[in-house]
């Protein structure tokens, strides 16, 4: 069923789901929604199952003509939005009908927002996922960013009986100064004073920040004297903080599979959503946590999502 006609595509708009798993050993990155938390919330707000494809909006939103009656919700970055020139709220479901014009404007806080439609965005699954991997030209809408004139389909979903609204105390704030928790490793033994530098300095997000990685600017993070400058290429994890030859850290993201630079620390899973909402000019400070703490936080986050699911489905 046709649901959106793209009038203007916005800054960098793609179709994403949870990601494409099982093919990293073939050089296919996971891709998927960068802010997993906001992505899940957007789907919950329109009563979709967890792994349903949405539109990932970056910095500047699209202008869409609605082609079918549906329930929509936008979660993530603070972003101005109007339906037929009337303001609508994010983190809240709303209904639309054919002919409506949804205008999603520029982000005011954060970086990425997720537009979910009940029934989910319907694009063909490629290797088990609907996520767009632009670099490999696969998945999503013809493997590319959306552009004006594209017509997007959605699946058949059950319409909401009432409005769903995210509890306000669960909506994250996206401050320009971020405290990001990280675990040393996998190559923390290549560093000594570098570890002190990474945990005790402020780093600025540079303009080179995309779905592959975030390049940071700050004091040099030096390898310990005599340690090799590169390692034999190995797989990378989203959140791995790589130190390349210029000694400026890069937080790796979801469109990378292998690399030959050392990773001094790795951002914990629950904080990846925070990084995904950082924009150039923001400051990041890393806080050291243990693996046990990270696992505990991971499990708490899962419980929180389950509670949220129960709470929202009452609506």
């Amino acid at each position: 069923m046709e649901v959106f006609s793209v009038l203007t595509p916005g800054g960098y708009t793609t179709i994403q789901d949870e990601g494409r798993f099982g093919y990293q050993q073939m050089g296919i990155p996971v891709s998927g929604a960068l802010d997993a938390f906001a992505f899940h919330c957007a789907n919950l707000l329109v009563s979709n199952t967890k792994n349903t494809a949405v539109m990932e909006i970056t910095v500047m939103g699209p202008r869409l003509e609605i082609m079918a009656a549906a329930d929509l919700a936008v979660a993530g970055a603070g972003i101005g939005m109007t339906l037929n020139a009337q303001p609508v709220e994010t983190w809240t479901s709303f209904s639309v009908k054919p002919g409506d014009i949804l205008d999603i404007q520029q982000v005011q806080s954060g970086c990425r927002a997720y537009l979910a439609v009940n029934g989910g965005i319907d694009v063909p699954e490629v290797m088990g996922s609907r996520s767009t991997y632009v670099g490999g030209n696969i998945g999503g809408y013809h493997g590319r960013l959306l552009k004006a004139g594209d017509v997007i389909n959605c699946g058949r979903g059950k319409r909401l009986s009432g409005r769903r609204k995210m509890p306000s105390d669960m909506i994250p704030a996206y401050p320009p100064e971020l405290l990001i928790r990280a675990i040393p490793g996998p190559q923390d033994d290549f560093f000594q004073e570098g570890l002190e530098v990474i945990f005790q300095s402020d780093f600025m997000v540079s303009t080179k920040a995309d779905r592959m990685g975030y390049r940071l600017q700050g004091p040099e993070v030096r390898l310990h004297k005599g340690m090799p400058k590169s390692i034999i290429s190995e797989p990378t994890m989203p959140g791995g903080v790589q130190i390349p030859a210029d000694e400026q850290p890069i937080i790796l993201f979801v469109e990378q599979t292998v690399g030959g630079y050392t990773k001094i620390v790795t951002v914990i899973s629950v904080d990846l959503s925070k990084v995904a909402q950082a924009t150039p000019g923001d400051t990041i400070r890393f806080e050291r946590v243990s693996l046990e703490t990270a696992h505990k936080l991971y499990q708490e986050q899962q419980k929180k999502m389950q509670r949220l699911e129960t709470k929202l489905s009452d609506a």
Binding site: I183, P184, G185, P186, Q187, I232, E234, P235, M237, G239, G240, K263, T266, V267, I268, S269, L291, A294, H295, Y298
Partner: peptide
């Protein structure tokens, strides 16, 4: 073994190609 974050375990069997 190396810790690659809270979801990754890196297992090395040598350090040469």
């Amino acid at each position: 073994f190396r810790t690659a974050g809270d979801r990754g375990l890196l297992v090395e069997y040598g350090d040469v190609i």
